[in-house]
Amino acid sequence: EVTIKANLIFANGSTQTAEFKGTFEKATSEAYAYADTLKKDNGEYTVDVADKGYTLNAKFAG
Rank of each mutant, 00 (worst) to 15 (best):
E1N: 11
E1F: 14
V2R: 04
V2P: 02
V2W: 05
T3C: 12
T3V: 13
T3E: 04
T3S: 08
T3W: 07
T3Q: 05
I4T: 01
I4V: 10
I4F: 03
K5S: 07
K5G: 04
K5R: 14
A6D: 02
L8N: 00
I9P: 03
I9T: 11
A11Q: 09
A11N: 08
A11W: 09
N12S: 08
G13K: 06
G13N: 06
G13V: 03
G13Y: 05
S14M: 13
S14P: 07
S14V: 14
T15A: 09
T15D: 04
T15H: 10
T15K: 12
Q16A: 12
Q16M: 14
Q16D: 08
T17Q: 11
A18C: 15
E19F: 15
E19D: 07
E19Q: 10
F20H: 00
F20I: 00
K21A: 07
K21C: 10
K21M: 09
K21R: 14
G22R: 00
G22E: 01
G22V: 04
T23A: 07
T23S: 11
T23K: 07
F24D: 01
E25K: 09
E25L: 10
K26P: 00
K26T: 12
K26A: 13
K26S: 13
A27K: 00
A27R: 01
A27Q: 01
A27C: 05
A27N: 01
T28P: 01
T28W: 15
T28N: 05
T28F: 09
T28I: 13
S29M: 14
S29P: 02
E30G: 05
E30Q: 12
E30K: 09
E30A: 14
E30R: 09
A31Q: 00
A31E: 01
A31I: 07
A31W: 05
Y32S: 02
Y32R: 07
Y32P: 00
A33L: 09
Y34R: 05
A35G: 02
A35T: 07
A35H: 01
A35W: 14
D36Q: 07
D36I: 04
D36W: 02
T37A: 14
L38G: 04
L38C: 09
L38Y: 15
L38I: 05
L38P: 00
K39C: 08
K39S: 10
K39P: 01
D41S: 12
D41N: 11
D41E: 14
N42G: 06
N42S: 08
G43C: 05
G43N: 02
G43H: 02
E44F: 10
Y45A: 03
Y45C: 04
Y45Q: 01
Y45G: 01
Y45H: 02
T46A: 08
T46L: 08
T46G: 04
T46W: 09
T46R: 08
V47C: 06
V47R: 01
V47E: 01
D48K: 10
V49G: 04
V49D: 04
A50I: 12
A50S: 12
A50C: 13
A50L: 14
D51T: 02
D51A: 03
D51W: 02
D51L: 03
K52Q: 14
K52I: 05
K52G: 15
K52C: 15
G53P: 02
G53S: 04
Y54T: 06
Y54M: 10
T55K: 04
T55E: 05
T55S: 05
L56C: 05
L56I: 15
L56A: 02
L56Y: 02
N57Q: 06
N57V: 12
A58E: 02
A58S: 04
A58Q: 05
K59S: 11
K59H: 14
K59G: 04
K59P: 03
F60G: 00
A61S: 13
A61L: 13
A61N: 12
A61F: 14
